[in-house]
C-alpha cells in the first residue's frame, strides 16, 4: 500500500514541480542569504546569553574554572534541595571534575524516575535565544533533560555562539566528524504550560527549574549586566 501511495504522491508532485536541477536549487538557496536573527540585548556575548536565560525563567551563575564550578554546583544543590546528589551522563568532561572537593556525589548514567536533580554539560549555547544545546547519547541521555525535577546545565563559554545559524554551522561540523546524533535538543527554560486559562505554570512535564552555569572566560561584569538588563 505504501509503495503505491508513494508513487502516486510523487507523480502528483512532479506534475507541478519545476523540475530544476540540484545545482540550480542550491544556487537559488544561496542567493536568498541568511535570515535575520533577533538583536542581542547587549554587545557582550556572555552577558547577552545570560540575559536571555534569565528572561527564559532560568537562573544563572558564572565560574572561572572547574574547581569553582563544582563549588557552585555543590552550593546550589545544598541551598535549594538540601542534597549532595545528582545524576549526570557519562560525559568525560563531567567525569574529570573534582566533585569530591565540593562534597557533590554524582551518579553517572540515566536519570531514573524519582531522582530529583540532573546535570548536563551543554555542547553549545546560543545567545540569541538563551538556549543550551545537548545531543542524545551516553554523555547526555535524553531522560536527563526531561525526567528530573531540576536541571543544571554547564556551558563552556567557548561553546557559546551568537545565533542559531552559527549553532547549526557548529552542529554540522560535528556531524561531519562524528555522525548524526539521534536527537539534538535546544532547551530554553524550565518546562512550562499555559494550557489552562492561559496561565503560565512551570514543571508541566519536564523540570520545574533550570539553572545554567556559564564557565570559563566570562567577563566579570557579565552576570551583573545580565541581571540589570533582565530587570532582576
Amino acid at each position: 500500500m505504501t509503495d503505491s501511495a508513494r508513487s502516486h504522491i510523487f507523480a502528483k508532485l512532479r506534475q507541478v514541480s519545476r523540475g530544476a536541477p540540484t545545482t540550480t536549487l542550491e544556487r537559488e538557496l544561496q542567493a536568498m542569504g541568511r535570515a535575520p536573527g533577533a538583536a542581542l540585548p547587549c554587545p557582550d556575548l556572555c552577558a547577552a546569553f545570560l540575559t536571555n536565560v534569565l528572561r527564559n525563567q532560568g537562573s544563572v551563575d558564572c565560574t572561572g574554572n572547574r574547581s569553582e564550578t563544582v563549588k557552585v554546583v555543590g552550593q546550589y544543590l545544598y541551598e535549594h534541595y538540601h542534597s549532595h546528589r545528582l545524576v549526570a551522563g557519562n560525559d568525560p568532561r563531567l567525569a574529570a571534575m573534582p566533585w569530591r572537593d565540593a562534597g557533590v556525589l554524582p551518579r553517572f548514567g540515566s536519570v531514573e524516575p524519582g531522582e530529583p536533580v540532573a546535570l548536563s554539560f551543554a555542547r553549545l549555547a546560543v545567545a540569541e535565544t538563551g538556549s543550551i544545546i545537548t545531543w542524545t547519547g551516553k554523555a547526555n541521555p535524553a531522560a536527563n533533560n526531561l525526567l528530573a525535577e531540576h536541571h543544571i546545565v554547564l556551558v563552556d563559554s567557548a561553546d557559546l555562539v551568537a545565533n542559531t545559524e552559527q549553532a547549526w554551522d557548529r552542529i554540522n561540523q560535528d556531524m561531519d566528524k562524528s555522525g548524526r546524533p539521534r536527537g539534538i535538543n535546544f532547551i530554553a527554560g524550565p518546562s512550562s504550560t499555559a494550557d489552562i486559562e492561559g496561565q503560565l505554570v512551570y514543571g508541566a512535564h519536564g523540570p520545574h527549574s533550570w539553572h545554567v552555569i556559564l564557565m570559563g572566560d566570562v567577563p566579570e561584569t557579565a552576570l551583573q549586566e545580565a541581571r540589570s538588563i533582565a530587570g532582576l
Partner: peptide
C-alpha cells in the same frame, strides 16, 4: 503563536537509538 522568542524545547530527531546510546 505564543509571543515567546522561542519555546522551551526545540528538538530535532533523526532516527532510532545509536549503538553507543543508552536510551531512545
Amino acid at each position: 503563536a505564543t509571543g515567546q522568542p522561542q519555546t522551551c524545547y526545540t528538538s530535532y530527531y533523526s532516527g532510532p537509538r545509536r549503538e553507543q546510546d543508552t536510551d531512545g
